[in-house]
Write a protein that binds this DNA or RNA. Sequence first.
DNA 1: CGCGTCTTTGAGAAACATCAACAGCGGTGG
DNA 2: CCACCGCTGTTGATGTTTCTCAAAGACGCG
Lengths: 223, 223
Amino acid sequence: MYVTRPNDHLERQPISESGAASRMRHLHRLQPGKHLFHEGQDARNIYEVVSGVLRLTRVLEDGRRQVIAFGYPGDVVGFPSDGRYHTDCDVLRAAAVVVHNRSALESNKGDAALRTRLLQAALREISAMQDHFLMLGRKSASERVASFLCILSERVGTDLGQFTQFDLPMSRSDIADFLGLTTETVCRTFTQLRKSNVIALDRVHTVIVLKPRDLLAVAEGDI
Amino acid sequence: MYVTRPNDHLERQPISESGAASRMRHLHRLQPGKHLFHEGQDARNIYEVVSGVLRLTRVLEDGRRQVIAFGYPGDVVGFPSDGRYHTDCDVLRAAAVVVHNRSALESNKGDAALRTRLLQAALREISAMQDHFLMLGRKSASERVASFLCILSERVGTDLGQFTQFDLPMSRSDIADFLGLTTETVCRTFTQLRKSNVIALDRVHTVIVLKPRDLLAVAEGDI
DNA sequence: CGCGTCTTTGAGAAACATCAACAGCGGTGG
DNA sequence: CCACCGCTGTTGATGTTTCTCAAAGACGCG
C-alpha cells in the first residue's frame, strides 16, 4: 500500500478469497507476527495478498527504520532483485496469501496470464512508489498523514453513509516510519485532525472520516 | 539512477554503444532539453539509456517538484503503469537510447531475452526505489548529499589514482528536488564537504572526491 | 488489578526552509 | 575586447517545522 493517486486503486483487482481457493494448493494462512521473508534472503516466492495486512520494512545499520509499504488485499509483495529480497516482510493482521514461485514472474514458460498479472503488479508498484517519493520528499507532516488516511479510506473504508470508517492495523510508529516522521508528530497530526472534526478516533485504531473533502484538502496542501 | 546500496551497480549491465548499434533501427539520439515523454501520456515505448543522462520528474499541482530519478547508461526508463507514463522525462546530457515498444516487456510473444532483461531492470528499479525511500524518509541533509555523491562516484566516476572525478550534469535544484531538500541546503552541504576537504569542486559541475572513505562515513551517518 | 506497551501531550532544541543579497559565469551586442 | 545582462550558485540572517527528551495517560493482557 502506497499513497497513490485517487484513481490508481480502480485498476487493482483484488482476488476474491473463493477465487484464490480454487488455486488452493498455493493459498497460505499467516498469523500476526509471522515473517514471510527477510532482507537479503534468496527470493523463492512472490506473494499475492488475498486478505489481512502485511508490513514491508528496511532498516539502516544504526536502527533507523523505513516502512516501505503495507501489503493489503490485491497487493503483490516479494519482488526479487538479483534473486534476493530487499525488505523484511511480516504480518500485521492475520492474512491469506497466494504463493507463487519466483519463476512464475521470471520464467518465460508456464502460466502466461499469471505472469502478466504479476508483471502488471510490479509496474503498478513502480508507479505507486513514485507517488510516495513526492510524499517523502515534498509534503508536510499533515499532508502526509492526511494523504495516508485518504488512501486507506478509499481502499479499505466501509461506507457509513455520510462517513467512512476503517481500521488501522499498524502502530503509530509504523505510520511514522512509513511517512518519514516521528510517532510524536503523527500523534499530534491525528490530534489536530480530530480537534478540527475532520476525523474521529474510536479506540485509537479505528478512524472515522467525518469530512472527506476537508481531509483531501489537507492532503493536497489547501489546508 | 537512485542511490542504491554499494553492490547493486555490479549487477547492472550497461549496453555498449556498439552493441546497441547492432540493433540500430531502434537507437535514437537525443539533445539536451528534449522531452522523451510526459506524465499522463499513453506509454508507447520503453527506453534503455546507452549514453548521456536523462531526468525523470513529477510535479504537484502547486508546483512542488520531485526528481524521481536520473537516467544513466544501463538504466531503463518509461515503465508504464495502466498503459501510461507517470513521470516526465527529459534530456540533461546528449543521450543515445534504445527504444523498445512497450509490448517488448508486456507481451508474451517476441524476444524472450529482451523481455527478461527489461523485467530484471524493472525489478532492480523497485529495489533501488526502496533504497531511496530510506534516503527521503530517514536520512539527514548531509547524509543524502554524501550518499548521492558516493553513488555517482561509483557509477560514473573516472579513477584519478587516489581520487575520483565526475561530472554533475544536473543543477543544484535538480539535486535538491531529487533528495527532498532546497537548493540552499544542497549548496551549504557542498560547501561543508569542500571546507572539510572531503571533496573539491571544479567549475561548479565537476566533483573530485578527495577522501572517499570520509564521504562514505558522512553518507552512513558516522560523521 | 497490576503491569508493560503504546499513545498522547508538553517544553525546548535542532535541522532545515525561507527570504534576501551578492558573486560567478557565460553569452551577447556594442 | 569589454560592458552588460541573466541565470545559477553561494552565503547570511531569520523563521518554521519537526525532532528530541520527558512525563503522564490509555489500553490490552495475564
